[in-house]
Design a binder for these strands. Structure first.
Lengths: 119, 119
DNA sequence: TTGAATGGTTTAATTTAACGAACCATATCT
DNA sequence: AGATATGGTTCGTTAAATTAAACCATTCAA
């Protein structure tokens, strides 16, 4: 694969994980993720329970949960009026791994000291 | 390593790559990175040259370059009044890889169907 | 030493994101 | 149906990020 192909791939990677990057770049959402990861198994947590463990209002939590959900990082299960949120085991963070790996590859191929090939 | 230890590790990871996440989460900065990666070898590009390849003003480019530099993703070399910017081969994107790997590990240990251990 | 080139920074305006009060929708229970 | 619990959404406000004009600092050439 030549240089331009790799660059296009990285460009695609950026597009694919755009939502994920914005979602986990926010410290509040990182805190929410850690709260969710701290719960036993996959039963998930209700919005109210998450709110209690943060300094935020319920609407704010709801807002951040939506962003995390749109990014494919968490999932929701309805149960009556209760909504349980939990980490998506098949999380879209894999897209991030792809991005990082592709960049690593690129740098190794075209920026390493022992072999500048030029595309 | 138990569950809480892993959670603390992920918490650290988030702190460590906070700047990186914010830096590459912005589409404009992604475009700048792609421009830098597209240049032949490591001579780097001047601010003026980067400006020409974007829709931005020079101050805006300068602003974004500073953010990318603070995050350890790019480096600068001065040559007279000219400043050359280039990708940091030892880029701090490695911190991102660590984060993703740690989360993957965590999910595999505590959220996989075949073995919920509880910490 | 003047003039031109290069690019950081400051400032002010615009855009975008985050936030909570108030509100609305839905489900459950009596 | 009425009352309660739960949580999405709307709306106006506040906070933060992005942007370009204007400005300042440094280097080099004539």
């Amino acid at each position: 694969m030549n240089k331009q192909d790799q660059l296009n791939m990285i460009k695609e990677d950026f597009i694919n994980c755009q939502k994920v990057l914005l979602a986990i770049g926010d410290e509040t959402r990182q805190a929410i993720l850690l709260v969710l990861m701290g719960t036993d198994c996959q039963t998930g947590l209700r919005v109210g329970e998450i709110t209690e463990q943060t300094h935020l209002s319920r609407p704010a939590v709801s807002h951040h949960l939506k962003i995390l959900r749109d990014a494919g990082i968490i999932l929701m299960r309805k149960e009556g009026t209760k909504n349980f949120y939990y980490i998506n085991v098949r999380t879209e963070l894999g897209l991030l791994r792809t991005l990082v790996l592709d960049i690593d590859n690129f740098l190794q191929n075209f920026y390493s000291n022992d072999g500048i090939l030029e595309g």
